[in-house]
Amino acid sequence: MKDHVNSFLEYLQIEKNYSSYTIEFYKKDIEHFILFMKEQSIATLDDVEYFDARLYVSSLYEQQYARTSAARKISSLRSFFKFLLREKIVHENPFILVIQPKKGVRLPSFLYEEEMQQLFDSCDDSTPLGKRNLALIELLYATGIRVSECANIMVDDVDFEFSTILVKGKGKKERYVPFGIFAAEALESYMNNARSLLVDRSGHRSLFVNARGGPLTVRGIRHVLNDVMKKASLSGKIHPHMFRHSFATHMLNNGADMRTVQELLGHTHLSSTQVYTHVTKEHLRKTYMNSHPRA
């Protein structure tokens, strides 16, 4: 059974080109189901039937798994058994007819334009770290890139002539993302006057540098953003994706079309981008309810 799992994980890595982060989730989901098989005395993967799959789903609800987590586990196992069926290891896919629980629509949280301005104003760009912080948040907001993508940007990926950045996204997909004049000015100031003062002796080419001189990691970016949030005296916790959400929401609020935003965000499916229309509609509804005299 372990060999079959490893073969599937190799298939995800080599043929599907999934990230190690995604593959780890698949592995955990399959291991969780194998534990269930042992509890139910199911000897082999080929012995799993539709009834067993239904029983497993029921056990997820009994353990009070969130709908999103249950849906992910079902999807992982459906893909796993599809692979096993293709390899003729099993004779049927017991999860093919299992109905996934509907996911609740969770609206992305975002910062208003006034709040974004407070963040920019809170950065003291008279110091090297202050210049880095301003360049970081300007770039995140200007491009809507993921924090993991931001952490992987190299100095040579920035093209000031065309105001674009080469971004390595999910599944090793690359795309060019434009940035505006505010981000350009902050980046130039940081790269010309601060980065060389921060970088360590290794001379690495990562664009953003931490206080010790090494590459700024995703965790480090999260720490920087929380620190900037405190200095800006904004209430609530900030998370890195809020810049991505704010980028998409503000673009749509100001008339950008859905397809353009989809391409800029690097979304494979338009449905991933459409969630932001719910945010903009909710924003319009709240504005109307607060402003109209007979709302």
Rank of each mutant, 00 (worst) to 15 (best):
V199R: 08
S109E: 15
Q100P: 00
H4C: 09
F8T: 06
S58L: 13
T287C: 07
S202H: 05
R222F: 00
F81P: 01
I23Y: 03
M258S: 10
R259E: 09
V48E: 08
K88Y: 00
F120L: 08
S246F: 12
L216P: 03
V199N: 05
T260G: 05
V5C: 09
Y18Q: 12
P94D: 01
Y56K: 12
I14G: 05
E49V: 08
N253S: 12
R146K: 06
K103I: 04
A248M: 13
F83C: 07
L129W: 01
T127Y: 03
A142Y: 06
G213L: 10
D125K: 10
E149D: 03
L85V: 01
L9C: 05
H32D: 10
M289Q: 15
L136D: 01
Q63D: 05
L136S: 03
K38L: 07
S246C: 09
L134K: 03
K237H: 14
T44P: 00
K16V: 11
E188G: 11
L139S: 11
E62N: 13
V90I: 09
H267S: 02
G171N: 09
E10R: 14
H204T: 04
R285H: 02
D257Y: 13
R175C: 02
A135Y: 03
N17H: 12
I137V: 03
Q63I: 08
E149N: 00
D159A: 05
V5M: 10
A248W: 13
V177W: 03
Q274K: 08
G144V: 08
A256Y: 05
L45V: 07
Y61S: 13
F247T: 06
T22A: 15
S19F: 13
Y21P: 14
